[in-house]
Design a protein around this nucleic acid. Structure first.
Lengths: 215, 215
DNA sequence: CCCGGAAGATACCGTTCGGTACGGATAAGG
DNA sequence: CCTTATCCGTACCGAACGGTATCTTCCGGG
């Protein structure tokens, strides 16, 4: 199936982003695949706990290749966090797109459980445990992650506020409080998953949390 | 969410050493005070993020003094965690001693908020953010903290199960699920406090969480 | 009053950290 | 073919890591 020239494919766009025409020796590893491996290391060990040695070993590349492709450790982490958003954290965007607030909440909570307990991934949530605390020198990264979490919370808030305006939630709903409750339970689930709790046990937590839901 | 008695090692050893007749030059710093300072550093930066340089600077002592008094970094951390249990985390033991399950829950949640947002302390909870993830070499510490959290959860479970047997909670109550819900909300509150949420906002979360309470 | 013994201070240990210089390898363009 | 531009691999950098040897300082008991 071919596309009109006016709508460039992803490959074309990526090629365009490479400012220079393709010259020299081509990269011998898959960038996306290496990024995915790095994401898993950050997920399991956190930003500071993930050493360059552990990262390059998991990615199957050498240090200079890593630096050429991702800038530095912080850049790699940022890309890994973004990659998480389009991968394991994808459920959030899908949840926010649900038609009813109750469905939004349920998908957020079930998705948090499913992602944080997926046996194919490290336990927990990268956005929570990637840099919850940090040494003084890594504090900028910690601050970025804080802002990221808070931006996500703001999106949930906007979605629920819209639901309230639409009559999908009672007009008297304290959207601020409901949002923070929802996100807090998601975060708590992430911590508990990181502590080894089973998917079934955490889904029972979701059942209880949803009993709070208005209307 | 556990109690200091869970890891008695370092404190007991040091206490035993203290029982001998005091000879030689007396210690010129207050051990408890230094431990408290160390706790704050671990609280803010995590186990791995807290360097010996940062620790000794905050404690106002030199490295050899630290090693003489606390063994090594891991030992200092364990003592700091225990110290947290008798200090900022004291509310947990008091909560478990309340006569009614509902009061237990409320004190656990309010205490979590109060401690995690105390302006005199770092934001969040040491038991959550002290070692939620770790590098391979610090993994034993992470595992200890995991066990500590799970032991605390077990204590809450026992308390609620007792309440159920006493008729304080409905006989049909799923204590396992209720416990995990309670602890998850506490953990979520800790994460949100670490992200800068205000005490007021988090107390609204507690209000919502308590609506789940049976009977 | 001196001497045993523990604490404090300095200066250092080997290792690992994040990050890079450099030279050989490998493709496309001419 | 040769040039050119990029990538890979090795080997290394200074700094910071956790931890310690050593010497000086100071107190209590004889």
């Amino acid at each position: 199936m071919s596309l009109p020239a006016a709508i460039p494919t992803a490959a074309v766009v990526t090629a365009a982003k490479r400012s220079k025409p393709r010259l020299g020796r081509p990269r011998s590893f898959n960038r996306e695949q290496a990024l995915d491996a790095a994401m898993h290391v950050f997920w399991r060990q956190g930003y500071e706990g993930a050493s360059l040695t552990a990262l390059t070993a998991a990615m199957g590349i050498n240090r200079p290749s890593l630096y050429a492709a991702f800038g530095d450790k912080a850049g790699l982490f940022r890309e890994a966090v973004a990659h998480y958003g389009t991968g394991p954290g994808r459920y959030i965007r899908r949840a926010l797109g649900q038609p009813k607030a109750r469905q939004v909440a349920e998908m957020l909570l079930r998705g948090a459980v499913a992602t944080a307990t997926d046996p194919a991934n490290p336990n927990g949530c990268l956005w929570v445990q990637g840099a919850l605390v940090a040494s003084a020198e890594a504090d900028p990264i910690r601050t970025e992650m804080m802002a990221l979490r808070n931006a996500g919370t703001a999106q949930v808030h906007d979605r629920l506020e819209r639901a309230r305006r639409e009559g999908d939630l009672p007009a008297a709903t304290d959207v601020q409080a409901l949002t923070l409750f929802l996100v807090s339970v998601m975060n708590g689930i992430a911590v508990q998953a990181s502590s080894g709790r089973s998917r079934e046990a955490l889904n029972n937590v979701v059942d209880l949390a949803l009993k709070v839901w208005p209307a």
